Computed example of a mutant assay.
Amino acid sequence: MNTKIKSISNGIVKEIININNISVLELDKEEIINLFKSYGILLFRGFMANAEIFKEFSNSLSTDFINYAGGAFSRRVINGDETLLSVNDFKSEIKLHGEMYYQQNIPLMLWFFCANPPLKDGETTVCDGRHFFNELSSSTKKLFKKNNLKFTVRMSEEDWNKKYQTNDLSKLEEMCQKNNTHLQINADQSILLEYICPAIIPSRCGKYQVFINSLLPTKQLSPKILKFEDDSEIPDEVMSEINEIAEKITTEISWQKGDILMIDNTRILHGRRAFADDQRDIYIRLCSPVFPF
């Protein structure tokens, strides 16, 4: 046996630990796929991976890698590869969310790689969206099933050029159309974007309901841009309930150098604790699985 498999904390994260000094590239792909389908999140630890090994390993299980055009944060491109990005835009907490759930086309799978861990804090937080849905009160489930979320964003020409990585209005219009996002272009080339989506979605197998969205970090960082579809506010007591549930069911991952994390972005929410030092260097890749799930 070359690896040991154990659960972190409450069992959501399956940790695959190298106990026989093998490369992560030697792992049985079918076993990985089966574990991923069952748990939605896998942590590979002790394999002494570097950025190139991380890319090769993620390439072997993934397809349709995307860049971060349209993304909410600034992300540094690593080694000239637009599908390999640093997540350290700032150091404050980011609450639990699904990646890029403020647009229609989301990456179905996420990969994280620890190039360098923080000196302290900066844990990645995760939870299962199925579990989150089950923890919601009946009234909150009913509220979110009845009301979609609406993101309304105003951006200057300079800002949307940077966010969408283009200064071509026709390309912007094409991206918004593909993402089912309403686009209004103003005379000064500033824009207004509106995107409407549910907070609760069916699981890919259709058997479960999943609470996964970008609600918590948006309300945390840019509260004015998010309301219900009818322009009513999300009640404070509902936000308090959601934040309490998030803290209750969160699992924290304390990074070690060379760690690789594999996440189902249709089921698992992720976030980050705040940190203070400049050592933390975590990379992300956005993609789809090469296998059906």
Rank of each mutant, 00 (worst) to 15 (best):
L96T: 04
F211A: 01
D128H: 11
M262V: 14
N134E: 13
E252P: 13
I33Q: 05
C287M: 14
E233K: 13
S139Y: 13
L192Y: 10
E157V: 13
I8E: 08
V77L: 10
P118D: 10
D278M: 09
F112I: 01
D81F: 12
M48H: 13
S139V: 05
R130E: 02
P198F: 03
T140N: 04
S190M: 08
N134R: 15
L172T: 02
Q104L: 12
E135M: 11
K91C: 06
D64H: 12
K37P: 00
L261R: 06
Q209Y: 10
Y283W: 14
L84T: 00
T63D: 00
K29C: 03
S86C: 12
F132G: 08
D231H: 14
N2W: 13
E233P: 04
G98H: 11
S254Q: 14
Y68M: 01
L143T: 05
E157K: 15
I282M: 11
L169V: 14
A276M: 05
C114I: 05
G70D: 03
G206P: 07
S240N: 09
L149F: 13
D277L: 07
T218Q: 08
D259V: 07
F275G: 00
F132I: 03
M239H: 06
Q256V: 01
K91G: 01
K29L: 13
M175D: 02
T266G: 00
V77G: 02
Q104N: 12
L85R: 14
N116M: 11
K227P: 02
Q279V: 00
P118Q: 08
E233G: 03
T166S: 12
S86H: 09
V210G: 07
T125P: 09
G98N: 02
E247D: 00
K257E: 08
S92E: 03
